[in-house]
Nucleic acid binder design. Structure first.
Lengths: 228, 228
DNA sequence: GGCATGCTTCGGTTACGGTCGAACTATGCA
DNA sequence: TGCATAGTTCGACCGTAACCGAAGCATGCC
C-alpha cells in the first residue's frame, strides 16, 4: 500500500490555487515579499502568511529576512524544474487556464523560467546553438562544445567561471508553451542576465514575461539565427 | 496573476492521499480494477469510484472496460514520468513516508517504474550499458550506439522493431531511491519484459517491487557488470 | 429467470482546510 | 517616544470534498 515517497504531500501543497499562483509568481526568479505574494495569490496577507508557512515547511520555499521584509524565493532550482515540469504536463493535457488574457502572447514569446529564458525565444536560442554546433544534444541531454565555449566568449560569457559552480552548466527544460526544450542550467541563467545587462530585454513588473526592446530583439535574432 | 497552465488542478488531483496511493499502485504498470485500486487507496469502492472518475476527467488515467471489470492504467508514460519525477523530488526533500516497512529494501533494490526497471538494479543496468559503450550519455540524454544495438541483439532484443514505434527508444528517468538515472523508453520496457520472459525476475502481487530469482540475479549481474 | 459480482450514483454526514477580521509582534523611521 | 508598515497568530466561519451506507445499473454465470 504505502510505497515510496509521499507524493500526496507535495501534490497538496501545489494543489491549492492560491499557493499555485504564488509559486508561479516566484517562477519569475525574483524574490518577493509576503505582501506581493498575497496579491499574486489573490488573497489577504493573513491567509498568505499561513500558506507561505506551509510551503516553507514543505521545503518548497526559502525565506530571507531583510529589515522588516520577508523575501521568499523557490527553495532551489529543483523546485523550479518540478513546477515547469508540471506546467508542461498540464499544458499537454489542454489544462490551460480558461482566460487566455492579453499577456498570454507575450508570455509565449519570451518569459522567465525561474532564472533562464523560456518561450519561443528560449527555444529558438537553444535550437540555434545546437544548429551551429555550440551545444551537443542527445535526447534531453545537453553539453557545451569547445566551439560553443569560444562562441560564448564572444558574447562576453566566461564559461570557466560557470564551471566552478556545482550546478550543471547546461540543462534542458521542457517549455510548456512550445512543448520543446529550452536551455536551463547556469549557462541559461548567465545568458539571460547578459541580455538584461546589454539592455536587450527587461523583466516586467508583475509577470514572468520578458520584454525585448526593438533593438534588442534585432540583435537577439541575428545572434541566434534559424536556418530556413 | 493567472499565468500559464493550471498546475493547481493536477496538484490537487495528486494531493489527495487516497488518489496518490492509487496512482502509485498503477506505477506498477499493470492495469488494475476499481476494486483493487480501492484496496490500494485504503478506501471503499464507492469512494474509489468517484476518485477514479476525477482522475480520468483530469486525463491522468485511462480505463478499459472488459466484461464487468473496469481496468485502469496511467493514461500514458508522460503520467508515469511525472509521478516518478515528483517522487524523486519528494524523496530529495526527505519526505519519505515514515514507515520504512519490510518491503522498502526490496523496493530500493528493484522495482517497476511504470513499465521499466528502477531501483538499484535499474541504475546499475544503465551505468553498465554506458560504461561498455552501448549507450551514449550526455547529461540527461541517452542514445543507443551501433555497438549497443548488437549487444542487445545478443540478449534477444531487436532494436529495429522498437524504432518503428513513435515512442523514444532511450529515455532517462530519475530514480527516487538512488537519485540517479535509470533507463526508460521503449528499450527500458523491452529489457524488463525480457527479464520476465527469461524467468530471471517476476513482479510481486500487490507491490511495485521486482523479485529476481537467485539464478536470474546472477545472470543479470554478469550481464551488467560494474567495473570496480 | 434468478443470483452473484463489479461498479456507479445518490444522500447525508463529517471534517479538514481555506478564508478573513481583529489583535498582536516586530522592524524602521522621525 | 510615537507612528507607520510588514508580517504572524488567533478565532470563528464557511464551503468543499472526502467518506460511507444503501440503492441502482450492468454484466456474467447457471
Amino acid at each position: 500500500m504505502k510505497e515510496g515517497p509521499d507524493i500526496a504531500q507535495i501534490g497538496a501543497l501545489i494543489g491549492d490555487p492560491a499557493r499555485a499562483n504564488m509559486l508561479t509568481a516566484l517562477m519569475g526568479g525574483k524574490a518577493l515579499t509576503a505582501t506581493e505574494l498575497a496579491a499574486a495569490g489573490g488573497i489577504t496577507v493573513q491567509t498568505a502568511s499561513t500558506h507561505l508557512a506551509k510551503l516553507e515547511a514543505g521545503q518548497l520555499l526559502a525565506q530571507r529576512k531583510q529589515g522588516r521584509h520577508r523575501y521568499f524565493t523557490l527553495a532551489d532550482d529543483a523546485v523550479g524544474k518540478l513546477l515547469e515540469n508540471i506546467m508542461g504536463f498540464a499544458a499537454g493535457r489542454g489544462h490551460l487556464r480558461h482566460q487566455p488574457g492579453p499577456k498570454e502572447p507575450a508570455l509565449r514569446k519570451a518569459r522567465i523560467c525561474y532564472d533562464h529564458l523560456a518561450g519561443d525565444f528560449g527555444v529558438r536560442m537553444l535550437d540555434s546553438l545546437v544548429a551551429k554546433g555550440a551545444i551537443d544534444a542527445i535526447g534531453d541531454g545537453l553539453a557545451l562544445t569547445g566551439k560553443g565555449e569560444s562562441t560564448l566568449k564572444c558574447i562576453g560569457i566566461d564559461v570557466g567561471d560557470l564551471k566552478a559552480s556545482r550546478r550543471p552548466l547546461c540543462r534542458s527544460c521542457l517549455d510548456w508553451s512550445e512543448r520543446r526544450a529550452h536551455l536551463a542550467g547556469s549557462l541559461g541563467k548567465a545568458l539571460l542576465l547578459k541580455f538584461f545587462d546589454k539592455g536587450w530585454a527587461r523583466r516586467t513588473a508583475g509577470s514572468r514575461s520578458v520584454i525585448f526592446s526593438p533593438n534588442g530583439e534585432r540583435q537577439f535574432l541575428a545572434l541566434f539565427p534559424i536556418d530556413a
